[in-house]
Design a binder for these strands. Structure first.
Lengths: 100, 100
DNA sequence: AACACAAATCGGTATTTATAGATTTGTTAT
DNA sequence: ATAACAAATCTATAAATACCGATTTGTGTT
């Protein structure tokens, strides 16, 4: 549990927003017509559109969130779906409570 | 509660260390001979010595921690004492639990 | 008033981060 | 095989951050 790395990941408004949006995909994103559900999370294009930043930037951001295990990535066909990893997020908060 | 600003403050190892040291001043610092207690926290020189960084850097770091209300500063004579503000720290963690 | 010392501020440089565009890679459909 | 498109990676630049040394400010002591 690398606190500094996690806090860096969480020190950017867009990345925090993305984590928030991923809590309620139905509310924040259009439906995945190919899949019909958000079981694997949300595809990068949708996140990019919502964040209104470039594809490369969002791809980088998602990588950073993956690197701290705050999201999982699942590739299905052409698309990669990103989903919050509640377990790690909760662990992080508990860790903070102990260690901060 | 400005999450981004707080997370920025917490994205530096030294600042996190300082917060940790301030949890147990008796363990981490020599006694305050002038005062005889740590009721107002720890003076900047001690923190600087422990962190092994320049006075100006530590002064800046303490300001950043003050700006997010994670520490309070009390000037007594020549010295300024810094103390954790447990209330804000706890609020932050609770906020994270809700909003992250 | 002059000195000494703690802390704050100012100015500077090196490193890191935010972000974009261009290119490459992976995958599906022709 | 080629086209089409999503996502990843590479390269680059502007802005922010991590420090430091020098200077200034605040306070207590001579």
């Amino acid at each position: 549990m690398d606190l500094i790395k996690i806090n860096k990941a969480l020190s950017n408004q867009t990345r925090v927003n993305i984590l928030n949006w991923l809590k309620e995909p139905e509310k924040c994103f259009p439906p995945h017509t190919e899949l019909g559900h958000f079981d694997f999370g949300v595809c990068l294009v949708f996140i990019k559109n919502k964040a209104d930043l470039s594809q490369s930037t969002i791809s980088q951001y998602m990588l950073q969130l993956q690197n701290v295990d705050f999201v999982t990535a699942t590739r299905l066909g052409k698309w990669t779906y990103f989903k919050r990893n509640e377990e790690t997020i909760e662990k992080y908060i508990n860790y903070l409570k102990e260690e901060l």
